[in-house]
Structures are given as structure tokens and as C-alpha cells.
Computed example of a mutant assay.
Amino acid sequence: MPIFVPASGTLPGGLNPPPIDPLEVPSLSWTDARGRTTLLSDWENGWVLQPGIRGMDLPGYDFYTDASPQIDGNALRGLRAQAREIFLPLAFFDTSRAGFMTRKRSFFSTLNPRLGLGTLAMTEADGSFRTIEAYCASGAEGDFGENSSGLHWQVVGLTFSCPSPYWLGESVHVEYGAGASGSFFPVLPVVVKNSQVLGDTVIDNPGDARSFPVWTIHGPATSVEISNATTGLSFSVTASLGSSDVLVVDTRERLQTAVLNGSTNWWPNLATDSDLWGLEPGENDVSLTLAGTDSDTTVHLDYQPRFLTA
């Protein structure tokens, strides 16, 4: 049975050490819904990731096909990425039974799915990271077999279920504004004449999938239209914003809202033909058209690129 001996030379499990193999992975952490963060390979804290990690790369897909009489093969009509499962084998250990139980119980308390969704984060050596929302679906029930536990150690295989199949990159924030100069600059922020924000800009989404932004519009403005010429979709706000008003239009899937000043539902003030569009991977030709603005009018864009792999 292979044993990984730490730098101190002491075995974590006393006379019955755990089967810990060396494992080279970037930093992987778990943050529960209460904000408690645990580094998953942490010798000092008494847990180490084991070989056998699965589910970090491409998600599974459902493919929808049709067959036609007298035509060989099928026609692909559509597909959808499935919810993702990530499997993490983890060894817990200590030099004493009491220390081992304290460490294991402390970590397992963060896996309670009733707390809500937590976050798995993969961080590379250069500081770049990707995250995915998840909850622990199985694996922490307890297995006390001969090859999975001892007096001072236990190896568990935790399965995390991820409602979205995509890993999220670092948030992107862009600001657009109106100024009194009347000039247009094709760099961010966009500055145009003070009666109207009429800006054409290119937004480059570095992700592998469509990303859905949150738009924050600071008045005044008598009308707002934001469109994506790459997809041909747009949404419009038909009511006026005062100088102190802030409208947040959230286009994210399953979260779509339009809220004024943090409390008032402004969904009825979106044009009936509005589509809360997303940013396609790569370049998107976007136009912002606001009437009745002044130098205080700004539009903020926030989104997280979505990736197929960690």
C-alpha cells in the first residue's frame, strides 16, 4: 500500500496510516453558503485530495436528433449541456483520534446542503481562477471499511452536484458615460454629447459559452435601448429615469429582473418585444442608445465569462 510521508517524517495515522498518494493539482477550495472557505489539499489542517478526481473538464450533453425515412443517419436538431457532477476523493487524518474527529466534523459541517449552494474554486499558480456553484450530493455518509478508514483517518469520495455546467471566470466591469464635449471615443468609457448616449462598442467575451450581463443604469434618461447587433436582439426601457434613479436589469438565466432603486419592480416598463440577451463567445457589436441624458448619466456592464473547463 503506497504511503505519502510528509516532510516531518511522521505518519498521520499512527500504526494504521491512510493510503495517501502524492497528488499534483492546482489549489482547489470549497466555500460554503455561510462563507467558510476550506483549502481541500491542506496537510496542516488534516485533509488531502487523492487521485481519482473527476468532472473538472467538459460537461455531459444531451443531443436531440431526428431520423428521416430513406436518409442514412440522423439530423442534429439541438443540444444542451447537462448539470455537472464533480467527484473529489479526500483523506482526513490526525495523529490522535480526538484530533481526527474534530477535523472531520468541522469540515463535514460545511457540506450541509440545507445551507444552500457553495462554491468550488480552482486557482492556478499565476493567480487566475475559475469557480462553480455546487452542493455536496453524496459521499459523506460514512464508510468504515478496511481500506477506507482507520482509528485516526478516513478516505471519502465526495460528489458535488453543480446546477450550472459552466465554470465562471473573473468578473468583468465596464462603464459607459455621457459628457458635454460632444466627442466620441471608441475606447471605454464611451463619451458622447450630453443629450444622448449613442455608443457603438465591441465587447469581447473570452468564455466558451454565452454570458448574461447585469446592466446598471444611472439616470437621468427618458428612454433606454441596449442592443447586440451580433445576435440581432435588444431590450428597451420605456419609462423615464430621474437624476437620482438607478435601474438594474439582470439578464442572467433564472434570475431575470428589472429593479428600480433596489426595490421597485420595473419589469412592466420593459418594452414587450425586449429580449434580455447574452454575450456570445468572442466579439459582440453592442449599441447603447439613451435619450434625455446629462453628464451624470452612466451605464455599467458586469458579467462573468463562462467556461467549459476548470
Rank of each mutant, 00 (worst) to 15 (best):
M1N: 05
P2H: 10
F4A: 06
F4D: 13
P6G: 00
G9Q: 07
T10W: 12
T10L: 15
N16T: 02
P18S: 01
P22C: 00
V25I: 13
P26D: 07
P26N: 06
P26K: 06
S27N: 10
L28I: 15
R34N: 10
T38L: 07
L39Y: 04
L39R: 13
W43G: 06
W47S: 00
R54E: 13
G55V: 03
G55I: 03
F63P: 01
F63I: 15
D66F: 11
I71S: 07
R77Y: 06
A83I: 07
L90D: 05
F93V: 03
G99C: 08
T102C: 00
R103D: 00
K104S: 01
S106Y: 06
S106F: 08
S109Y: 00
L111R: 08
L111D: 03
P113H: 03
L115D: 11
G116P: 14
L120D: 04
T123W: 01
G127W: 02
F129C: 02
C136I: 10
A140H: 13
D143K: 10
G145C: 05
H152W: 10
Q154W: 02
V155M: 09
V156Q: 10
V156G: 00
F160A: 06
C162S: 13
P163M: 08
S164V: 01
P165H: 04
L168H: 14
E170G: 13
H173I: 15
E175T: 15
A180H: 13
F184T: 09
F184V: 07
F185R: 14
V192P: 00
K193M: 00
N194R: 05
N194S: 07
V197A: 03
G199T: 05
V202Y: 07
I203F: 07
N205M: 02
R210E: 14
P213H: 04
V214L: 10
T216P: 02
I217E: 09
I226H: 15
T230D: 06
T230F: 05
T230Y: 05
G232V: 11
L241E: 02
S243R: 14
S244I: 10
D245H: 11
V248I: 14
T251C: 15
T251W: 09
N261M: 05
N265L: 03
P268F: 01
N269E: 13
L270A: 08
T272P: 00
D273L: 11
S274Y: 08
L279T: 00
G282K: 04
G282W: 05
V286S: 05
L288A: 12
G292E: 09
G292V: 06
D294L: 11
Y303M: 10
Y303N: 10
Y303E: 10
Q304M: 14
P305T: 02
T309F: 08
A310H: 08
